[in-house]
Amino acid sequence: MTTKVLRLNVNGEDTLVPVGPMATLQEVLRDKLELTSVKVGCAQGGCGSCSVLIDGELRLACLTPAEAADGCTVTTLEGLNESNSIVPIQQSFIENYAAQCGFCTPGMLVATKALLERNPKPSRDEIIEALSGNLCRCTGYLPIIKAVEDAAAALSGKQSA
């Protein structure tokens, strides 16, 4: 098997990662770099638990061949944690009880962050559309939608202030 060395910038750090030909970005992030916020809910692109940002765009790590990320900037929830832009989203998820088992939550947070970057004041329909690739089996989605609405309000309120 041929191994290739990828050059990635992951959560702000330049990293060289040797990978085999079939490796996915999910395996690189979870198994090699120990970024365990990247959850493996299906490895089929069907649940959104492994949502990450590649060059700022929302992507599913499980469907991304590792080689396709060569030279890219990859951001996981670990990289967003405690940043000014994510804290209000985290706070809103907490206040709205927008997680139960929490397995889908990292993906939801990353998807929400991607949404609010490109659309700081999304409508309810736009929120639902943006999160439609992220499944949750516990909450019935209502608290998650409310959490995103509140986070958007908090963030845009901050910006306008």
């Binding site: 365990t36 929830l77 939550t105």
Partner: peptide, 21 residues
């Protein structure tokens, strides 16, 4: 009162069985 694991859920730091190295 707040759900105990929520703080770690939203930071991706809750430890499930396969997160043990």
């Amino acid at each position: 009162v707040r759900l105990r694991d929520l703080d770690t859920h939203v930071r991706g730091q809750t430890t499930y069985y396969e997160d043990v190295r």
